[in-house]
């Protein structure tokens, strides 16, 4: 039931995707995909797509060593995830360039480190991935590893995970 409520609340927050726009010609100023990335279907841009509200203040951005630290974490986390023997196969067909860019934007936005998020919402970006609970737990462990390697304090790691944990209903789809 909570899954339904959370999911529908998130869906309601999203205006319906316009079907009028031709997929190959996104309107100017809508960076669905940037050069170097594969084309993606149009979607509605919104900060709410990030799935949570950002932290207030600059404490979390400092704890993650600013945008440079977040870049290193995303880089390492991406490498670990694509190479992982358990969840690597979920990633391997995915555009790594776009994944790194949008994940960086999402983390940077949530940590209030001075970014906006231009990716899709969590439900539509995960709906076809077939993620199981064990996959999400594995993902958390790899993120913890990447954060630890960046020497982010454990309390700050958990604090960041508190923004991601409520997204589970949109991520774990079976």
């Amino acid at each position: 039931m909570f899954v339904l409520i959370a999911t529908s609340a998130l869906m309601m927050a999203q205006p319906p995707v316009s079907t009028d726009a031709a997929p190959d010609t996104p309107p100017p100023g809508a960076p669905y995909a940037v050069p170097g990335e594969e084309k993606v279907d149009p979607y509605t841009l919104s900060p709410q797509n990030a799935g949570a509200r950002p932290f207030a203040g600059t404490g979390m951005a400092h704890a993650f060593h600013g945008q440079e630290g977040i870049h290193r974490i995303v880089e390492r986390f991406t490498q670990l995830s694509y190479d992982d023997k358990v969840i690597g196969e979920i990633f391997f067909k995915h555009d790594k360039v776009r994944f790194k860019r949008t994940l960086f934007e999402q983390f940077c936005f949530l940590l209030n480190a001075g970014c906006s998020y231009s990716g899709r919402d969590m439900a539509s970006s995960h709906k076809d991935l077939g993620v199981q609970q064990a996959d999400m737990n594995r993902l958390v462990e790899l993120l913890q590893r990447a954060m630890s390697e960046e020497h982010v304090r454990f309390a700050a790691q958990n604090r960041f995970l508190s923004k991601l944990a409520p997204m589970r209903p949109d991520v774990v789809v079976r």
């Binding site: 909570f2 508190s162 409520p166």
Partner: peptide, 12 residues
């Protein structure tokens, strides 16, 4: 019965 120790609504 319901809820999760780690995930989902932090208040549930």
């Amino acid at each position: 019965l319901l809820g999760d120790v780690v995930y989902d609504n932090p208040l549930v």
